[in-house]
Amino acid sequence: MFKDSRLILGTGGATSLASLEAAIVASGTDLVTVALRRVDAAGPGLLPMLSRLGVRLLPNTAGCYTAADAVKTARMAREAFETDLLKLEVIGDDRTLLPDGLELLRAAETLVADGFTVLPYTSDDPVLATRLAGVGCAAVMPAGSPIGSGLGISNPHHIRLIRQAVDVPVVLDAGIGTASDAALAMELGCDAVLVASAVTRAADPARMATAMRHAVQAGMLAASAGRIPRRFHALASTADEGAAQW
C-alpha cells in the first residue's frame, strides 16, 4: 500500500505548487493526499502537477464533522479521482481537530461496505483503532498529536499498543514536527508515516522532505535491528582486560 518510501505526503499548507512539487520529489513518496473543494475555490494546476509526477492520490474527507458528510465527500472523491483509496477524517472538535470516534466508526463501516479502501485518521486510542480494523479498515492512522501542532508523538505507549492490537498497517498521521518524530514512529512499529505541515510549512520544504525520507528509512531499519535494552547504569563497551597498569 505504501511502497518503498513508507511515507505519505499531505499536500496541505504548501505556499506554492512549485514548493509542493519540490517537496514531493524530495520525499520519494508515491502517495499524496488531496482534499475535495468547490471548483471555484480550488486553485488550478494541482492535479496536472501530481499526474506529471506519477504519484497516486489519497483523497481525504477533511472538513467533515459527521459520518453522513464524510460518506458523501468520499463518494464524490471516488468519482473525481477514480480511486477507492480514502483517508477518512471525521473531525469532532474544531480547536484540536481530533476525530469524532463514533462518527468515524459509522462512516468507516458504511464506506467499507461500499467498496472503499478506508484509511481512517483516528486518535491514539487502541480500543477505537481495534474497532476500526474490526469493521474492515485497510489500515489505521492514529494521530501522534493534533494536526499541524508539530508536537510529535505525545503518547508513544499508545502507538505501540495500537501496533500490537491490530493486524492491519499502522500509519502515524498528524502531529509530526521534525524528522526524529518520523523515525520514532517507525521505531514504535508503525508501517508508514503521513506528514503534511511538518514538510509543507517548514522554511525549506524540500530539505525537510528529504529529512523525512531518511528518517522513515532510519526508523524502519532501527525497528528491525534489535536495539539494545535500556539500562539504569553504564555497560562498558571497552574490555578491562589488557589495560595498562600505571
Binding site: A35, G43, L47, P59, M76, F81, S197
Partner: peptide
Amino acid sequence: RSAWAAAGLRDGDRVEVLTAAQGG
C-alpha cells in the same frame, strides 16, 4: 461523469461541483 451529458436539472436544485485542492 458518464451521465453528465444526459442529466437534466430542475428549478431549485442544489449542485456541488468539486475538484482537487491541497489538503492533508
